[in-house]
Amino acid sequence: MGGYWSGILAILAINVIFAYGIFLPVATGQLNLGGAGFQAVGAYAAAYMSYTYDWPVALTLILAMVVTGGIGFAVAFPILRLRGVYLVLGTFAFAEVVAGLILNSETLGGAIGLPVPAFVDYEVPVVLAALVTLFVFYLMATRFGLVMRAVHDDEVVSDLMGVSLRGVKVAAFAVGAGLCGLAGGLYAHTFTYVEIQAFNALVSINVLLFVLLGGTQTAFGPLIGAAFFTLLPEALRVLLPQLQASVASLFGAAGDMRAPDDSWRFVILGCVTVLMMVFRPEGLVTRTLVERFKPRRRSGLAAAEASA
């Protein structure tokens, strides 16, 4: 496999894990716009241990997950008191605080960043992404998953049904933070360098977009969302010049020989995003869509109604 595709595959795998980290709180109705902050914590934890103490990759990844999950757990208690747009701003502010702290830390390399001696090839993120995907599908099939979706739909009723709202939200937020940390650790070892500019607000926005546009009702959503939005810009990189050439030939021109302007890819990406919000406001993959592909379990009466 060429270096280009293995690179894409590694980014895709990291993005899938990252998206699941944001999906878990979002599935309980808590928008997390601090993804880059959690990813940065994981990336720097792994990078620091690898750079300073030469820890093996397996240990740095576990540490990245545990540290970020722990910080997510601690932050969840105050931050989940916020609701709606205030929660979004709160998580966003958290990411800014993390970035500020790292930028001013000599130990973590400040603005220069840290090199990561241990490199991992694409297989590691791909295998871990598969494991994380299985884990999230499992989690969503448990009663915990049921309760997460219930809290998303109606908090008052969930509470009266005996659900511990805070317990569910904090657990989803902390486990999600742990997954963001794992994605960060993998990022560090894949790119062998961490600098805080890589974990900016745009990263937080993008990963939240993966989840919201992929669909928050089932575990398929983030998978599809991350895959779609990671691969679309790459596909456009190939397709856009062809598109330009064919448009040019329509007008009789012999084809535009200029190098394709890279920013057009993001224009198209933005348009696709808007279109998806208009036509699939609940995300690309919804619960009803998944049900449609399952074997029918309706019996007599409903079938009779359908045929009548």
Binding site: Y138, T142, R143, L146, R149, H152, D153, V157, S158, E291
Partner: peptide, 28 residues
């Protein structure tokens, strides 16, 4: 809960009797 199936809504009703960690983490 509009996004849950009929059975899932009923299973939510059982929550008060099924809140232990083992119950929460067993697939339904």
């Amino acid at each position: 809960m509009p996004h849950l199936s009929v059975t899932e809504n009923i299973m939510l009703g059982q929550q008060a009797r099924a809140g232990s960690l083992a119950d929460m983490l067993t697939p339904l």
